[in-house]
Simulated assay, not measured.
Amino acid sequence: MREPAAPRDKVPKTARGQKTLRQLLDAAAEEFGEKGFHEASISQITQRAGVAIGSFYTYFDSKEEVFTALVRDVSGQVRDYVAPRIAGEANQLDAERVGQQAFLEFARRHKEIYRIIDEAEFVDPAIYREHYTSTARRIAARLDAAQERGEISPGSSEIRAWALMGMNVFLGLRFGVWGEDCDPAEVARVGGDLIARGMGPRDPA
Rank of each mutant, 00 (worst) to 15 (best):
10 K>Y: 13
205 A>C: 03
5 A>Y: 01
154 P>I: 03
12 P>K: 01
183 D>Q: 07
78 V>W: 15
167 M>H: 06
54 G>D: 15
170 F>C: 01
119 E>P: 05
57 Y>N: 04
184 P>D: 11
100 Q>C: 11
186 E>H: 12
12 P>L: 07
150 G>Q: 09
30 E>L: 10
173 L>Y: 15
71 V>L: 08
164 L>K: 02
3 E>T: 03
143 L>K: 02
128 Y>P: 05
164 L>G: 07
82 V>K: 02
115 R>S: 00
43 S>W: 01
13 K>C: 02
80 D>A: 14
53 I>P: 03
57 Y>H: 15
155 G>D: 09
76 G>H: 05
196 A>R: 11
159 I>P: 00
73 D>K: 00
180 E>Q: 12
57 Y>S: 09
39 E>D: 14
171 L>I: 05
175 F>A: 02
10 K>S: 09
178 W>M: 09
114 Y>M: 10
147 Q>T: 09
8 R>D: 13
43 S>M: 04
20 T>N: 14
113 I>L: 12
142 R>C: 13
110 H>R: 08
99 G>D: 13
69 A>L: 11
23 Q>R: 10
71 V>Q: 04
144 D>L: 03
168 N>A: 15
162 W>G: 00
21 L>V: 06
9 D>I: 10
31 E>A: 04
135 T>Q: 14
103 F>H: 08
50 G>V: 01
77 Q>V: 10
45 I>M: 05
148 E>H: 10
76 G>P: 07
39 E>R: 03
191 G>W: 15
47 Q>K: 08
165 M>H: 10
39 E>G: 09
97 R>S: 08
84 P>W: 06
88 G>D: 07
98 V>K: 10
86 I>R: 04
174 R>M: 04
1 M>E: 11
175 F>R: 03
204 P>N: 08
145 A>W: 08
146 A>D: 13
203 D>R: 14
170 F>H: 04
177 V>Y: 15
106 F>W: 09
151 E>R: 01
5 A>S: 15
11 V>E: 11
84 P>E: 02
75 S>K: 13
198 G>M: 11
65 E>L: 13
8 R>W: 03
5 A>P: 06
128 Y>T: 06
74 V>N: 00
181 D>A: 05
89 E>T: 02
114 Y>V: 11
33 G>L: 06
108 R>C: 06
21 L>W: 14
51 V>E: 11
73 D>R: 00
44 Q>L: 02
59 Y>H: 13
54 G>I: 07
161 A>Y: 12
